[in-house]
């Protein structure tokens, strides 16, 4: 019962799109998302077909007896969806969270990794 109430409340919460950096390296795509307030238990990363969804839940940290004087940021959940191409190895995506930043390592599939071809001089 309590669970349903909680879920119902959550539906009305605002959802924010976290700011994201994406870096392409030789073997991986790295994704960094600013999600202050989440830890490894409250963040979900899911891959369904070619859709990568990152979702974070925030629990209020402020005591009810305080009144808000001014507010520059809102509190809500985080969500953002990305589409992945076949060039990413979807089974080996790794995720870590530290200081409110989610880091994803998305490995490139073997076939598209840049290959360096040695040029040998003719004798």
């Amino acid at each position: 019962m309590a669970e349903t109430v909680k879920d119902k409340n959550r539906e009305n919460r605002k959802i924010y799109a976290p700011a994201v950096d994406i870096i392409e390296t030789t073997n991986n795509i790295l994704l960094f998302a600013d999600m202050p307030g989440v830890n490894e238990k409250t963040v979900d990363v899911t891959v369904e077909k070619n859709l990568l969804t990152i979702h974070g839940m925030i629990e209020p940290t402020i005591d009810d007896k305080l009144t808000l004087v001014f507010s520059e940021y809102g509190s809500g959940d985080y969500q953002r969806v990305f589409s992945l191409t076949d060039e990413i190895d979807k089974n080996n995506i790794k995720a870590t969270v530290r200081n409110g930043v989610l880091k994803l390592v998305l490995p490139k599939t073997e076939k598209i990794k840049t290959r360096k071809i040695e040029v040998s001089g003719e004798a």
Partner: peptide, 8 residues
Amino acid sequence: EAYTRRER
């Protein structure tokens, strides 16, 4: 290595 998106 290069940034392909930079919002932070």
